[in-house]
């Protein structure tokens, strides 16, 4: 019987786990910094905040997903006018949700805030491209990698993967070496679907070495000419002939010593 492997998270797992080990946590400190306190209070006045804490010097605010544009607009007015990063985290296996984070920077205050919100799998999030142009490409990348739809985005298309790609690579359900569709992608594209039987699936494991294929793989221990029959006898390679001395006597006077490389 094949061993059971959970399908909802196919990423690499550590092979050893201690049942009694409790992972320590990065401390979530209360908000005490005066600048953060002021900003948090002003956001709290207008919007519902689920949680707020400081982690490693940056304020983290967790909000409702439907408030994202308004909260970010409010923060932008308070000086957080650079959206340096945004993306999502896949918690589908655990909670059936995506976590979306916006990493903001206030240059005038030298402070960074992370605004986080959660959405369900098939929900869409409102675009913040109207506030920050940088969200244009970030949201496209998020859509490409996770398949999260973004409402009112000017040009929501895949950015890193080809447009006709199947699946969203950074989801936890997507294996590292690609899925079924990925191994046929190039064969279909270059030769056509009808050649699938002739060519076979693309080998997507970078460590893969075929002993049968002598056209694409050199064989170190059993050298054969290129594209030779894999079962044929290897050629004998003459490395040394008897006339050439293996080691020449080292003569210091004849040699030139290079000590200055520059």
């Amino acid at each position: 019987m094949r061993p059971y492997r959970p399908k909802e998270n196919v990423q690499k797992k550590s092979y050893y786990t201690d049942r009694f080990w409790v992972a320590p946590r990065v401390p979530e400190e209360p908000v005490e910094d005066p600048i953060f306190k002021e900003d948090l209070a002003s956001v709290e006045k207008a919007f519902k905040i689920k949680r707020a804490y400081v982690q490693r010097g940056q304020l983290v605010i967790i909000i409702d997903a439907k408030d994202n544009v308004d909260v970010l607009r409010h923060l932008k007015e308070r000086g957080y006018d650079v959206l340096s990063e945004m993306s999502a985290i896949d918690y589908l296996a655990k909670d059936g949700e995506f976590e979306i984070f916006y990493q903001l920077l206030a240059m005038s205050k030298r402070k960074r805030i992370r605004v986080k919100c959660r959405i369900k799998e098939h929900e869409a999030i409102e675009s913040v491209e109207c506030l920050f142009r940088s969200a244009d490409w970030s949201e496209r990348e998020m859509y490409d990698m996770f398949g999260i739809k973004v409402n009112n985005h000017p040009y929501l298309k895949r950015i890193l993967m080809p447009e006709d790609w199947v699946g969203h690579p950074l989801r936890k359900t997507y294996p590292l070496h690609g899925d079924e569709a990925a191994q046929w992608y190039e064969v279909d594209k270059i030769f056509g679907k009808e050649y699938r039987d002739v060519i076979g699936p693309e080998q997507r494991d970078p460590a893969f070495v075929s002993t049968k294929d002598t056209c694409n793989y050199a064989r170190v221990t059993h050298p054969l000419p290129k594209c030779a029959d894999p079962n044929s006898e290897p050629e004998r390679i003459e490395v040394f002939n008897d006339d050439a001395p293996l080691v020449e006597t080292f003569d210091l006077k004849k040699s030139k010593i290079v000590d200055k490389t520059r």
């Binding site: 320590p24 946590r25 982690q55 490693r56 340096s84 990063e85 993306s87 984070f101 960074r112």
Partner: peptide, 20 residues
């Protein structure tokens, strides 16, 4: 590492390079 998250910005020759 402990459970949690971090965003660390640095000034690379090209600009702000950060790992989340």
């Amino acid at each position: 590492p402990p459970v949690g998250e971090v965003y660390a910005p640095t000034e690379s020759p090209k600009g702000e390079l950060g790992f989340f």
